[in-house]
Design a protein around this nucleic acid. Sequence first.
DNA 1: ACAAAGAAAGAAAACGTTTACTATTAAAAG
DNA 2: CTTTTAATAGTAAACGTTTTCTTTCTTTGT
Lengths: 349, 349
Amino acid sequence: MEKQATIRDVAKLAGVSLATASRVLNDNNYPVSVQLRQRVKDAAQRLDYVPNTMARSLKGDVRKDIGLVIPSISNQFYHQAIQGITDVLGQNQYSLILCNTIRNLPQEEKYLRQLYERQVKGVILSSMSDNPDMVNEYIKKGMKFVLLDQKLVGVDSAGINFDTRAGARMATEYLISRGHREIAFATLPMTRKTRLETHKGYLDALRSAEIPYREDLIYEKLADGLDAYSDPELETGRCIAQAFLEDGCPATAFVCINDMLAIGVIKTLLQNGVKVPEDVSVFGFDDIPFASTFLPSLSTVHYPAVESGRFAAYMMLDLLRNEKPEMSVVMQLTPSLVIRDTVAEPRKV
Amino acid sequence: MEKQATIRDVAKLAGVSLATASRVLNDNNYPVSVQLRQRVKDAAQRLDYVPNTMARSLKGDVRKDIGLVIPSISNQFYHQAIQGITDVLGQNQYSLILCNTIRNLPQEEKYLRQLYERQVKGVILSSMSDNPDMVNEYIKKGMKFVLLDQKLVGVDSAGINFDTRAGARMATEYLISRGHREIAFATLPMTRKTRLETHKGYLDALRSAEIPYREDLIYEKLADGLDAYSDPELETGRCIAQAFLEDGCPATAFVCINDMLAIGVIKTLLQNGVKVPEDVSVFGFDDIPFASTFLPSLSTVHYPAVESGRFAAYMMLDLLRNEKPEMSVVMQLTPSLVIRDTVAEPRKV
DNA sequence: ACAAAGAAAGAAAACGTTTACTATTAAAAG
DNA sequence: CTTTTAATAGTAAACGTTTTCTTTCTTTGT
C-alpha cells in the first residue's frame, strides 16, 4: 500500500519551496514563473498527488460537504429530493452525508451533533420536531440550515416548503365539484405543522362549499405493531380503511395526507370488495412515482420533489459561499392537481 | 456566531497543559490525577468543547465515515440496503457519504476520486462496470471495498452477493411445476455479470426440464427516450411487454430480472386486456417493498436487501478496524421464493 | 547612475490535534 | 541514606496544508 504523496514531496521533486508548490497547485493569481509552474505540475503528475482535504479544511477552508437529515429513507418523497440534491451537489464537488433518523428525535439530535463535530457547515433538514430550539442552537454556532418541507417558527433560516393548505383545498374542492359531499380525511397524527396545514385546507374547502364539518370523518391514526420492515404510512392507510369499513363506509371520498397512506387505504378497500373509484374515490398527496405506477393509478396533489431537492441544494450552496446570500428565502411551492384513476362521481344511492 | 472552543482553550481554563487536556478528553489509560481530570472535564463542559475531527484525522486517525457508491437512488433495492447500512453505521458513530452515479461510469470514477481525496478509507460499492482495474487501483492506495451485489473477478475484496443463478432457476422451475412450457425471459441489457448469471439460472431450469431453448423468448432491451424522471426499469418492462404483444404473446409466463421491470410488464399487459395471472404469469426478482404493495401482488425471488446492507456495513467496519479482518469474505446469500398473486396455471388453449 | 517599485521566490507561522520525549516528584528498594 | 522505579505533568514535534511576511532580484523613472 503506497504512501500518499504530500505537497512537500511535490515541492522537493520540483526543487521549489512549499509555498510555490501550493500556489501553483491552487491556481492562484499569485505570479509564478512559467518554468517553475511547469516543473511543479509535472512533479504533481508524476507523484499522482492529491491534496489532503482534511489538512486543507484545518486551515479554515469550509468543508465541501453538507449533511442531509431526514426522518425516513423508505419514503419515496425523500428519494426524489435526494435525487435533486445529489444532482446539484455532485456538479459542485460537494459530498452528501446522509443521516436517516428513522423518525426518532434523539437520533436526530445525535446526528446533528455528529455533523457539528465533523465541521459540516451546512445541513438540509427535515426535522421530526416543530421546536426551533435545537436548530437555533446550532445556527448560533455557525451552521447553516435549509429546512425541507417544513416551516419552523422562530428560526431565521432558509427553507423550502409546499403550500399544503392550498393543495388540500384544491383536492377537496375537486372532489366536491365531482359531486361528493361526504368526504373523509385520512392522516397520521397531526404532530407536524404541515399536517395541520393540510387539514386546514380540507376545512377551507368544506366551509366555502357550506358542507358541515363532521368530526367522525376525520381518521387520524398511526398503525400499531410496526416493525422496521413495514411502511408506517402504508400500514396506517390499511388501518384507517379498516376503521372506515367498520364504520359502514360513511363517506364517498377520501382525502389522504400522502400517497402511501392513500395506497394503503385503496388496497384494503379493494380487498374488502369496495371498488375504487366506483364506490369510494381516493385522493393522495405528493405524487410520488408509485402514485402513477400503482393500479388504479392515483389522483393526487403534485409536489415537485426532485425540484425541491435541487432548490434546497442551490440555497445551501449559496448560503455557504456568499456572506450575503442571494436566495436565502423561504421558497413556497404552489400545488397542482394530477387527476388519474381513483376519483369518480359518488355512487348513486 | 460563537467561535468554537479548542482544546487549547480548555487547557488554559483548566490550568493544565495541552497534553493533559488531550489525555483526559480521550480517556486514555494514561494516568492523570483525579483533580486535574475533573478540572479538565469541567472546563470542557463550560466551554462546550467539541473536538475537531478534521484535526484529529490529520494526525493519522482514520476518518470515521464511509462512502456508498450506487448506480441509482430511485431503486428500492438500494433504499433497503441503505436502511441496513445507516442502521449499523449510526450505531458505530460512522457517517455515510452517499454517491449516486445515475448509472454513469465516468461519474462513478469521479466520485471514487472525490472520496479518495477526502481520505475516506472505506467504500461500499455497487459498480456499473465489471472491470476490476479502477477498484484495484484504489485498493493499492489503501482504500477498502465491500462490493455490493456484484462480484468483480480479479479483485481481492470483501463482498456480498446473491445467488441469482439459483434464484432464477428456482423461479423458472416453479413456473414449470405449475405447468408452463413457454417461458419468456425479460431483462435489461446483460452488461452486468449478475444479469448473465440470472439468465444462466433460467437456462438451467429449462435444460433440466428438457424444454428447448427459444431465442425468440428472450426479451433483452433498454427503453429509449428515458429522461431523469422516468424509472428505467419500469419503462423497459413496458417496452418489453409491448414487443411481447406485437409478437402475439408467444409465452404463458415471464421471468423478469427485477421487480420493477416485472411491474412494467404487468401494467402494460393489463392495459392491453391481457390478464395477469390468468393469461400470463409473471415472476419478479428482488422482492422490493412495492412488490407486495402492487396489485396484483407480485410473485418474486426474495432478496434480503436490508440484511445485505447491514452485513456490508459490518464487513466494512471490520475491514477498517482490524488489521486482520475476521469477516472479510465474499458472503453468498441464498434465494427464496415468495409466491403471491401473479402466477397461475397456464390458460388452457 | 541611483532610488523606488515591482516581480518572483522562499521562510515560517498557523490551523487543532495527538504523542513521543522530558522533567519533576514521590515512593520503593537496596 | 542513596539509588531505582513508578506516577504525573509538561514541552515540543508532527500531521499536510495555506498564507503572511520577508527577501532577493530585476525593472523603471528621474
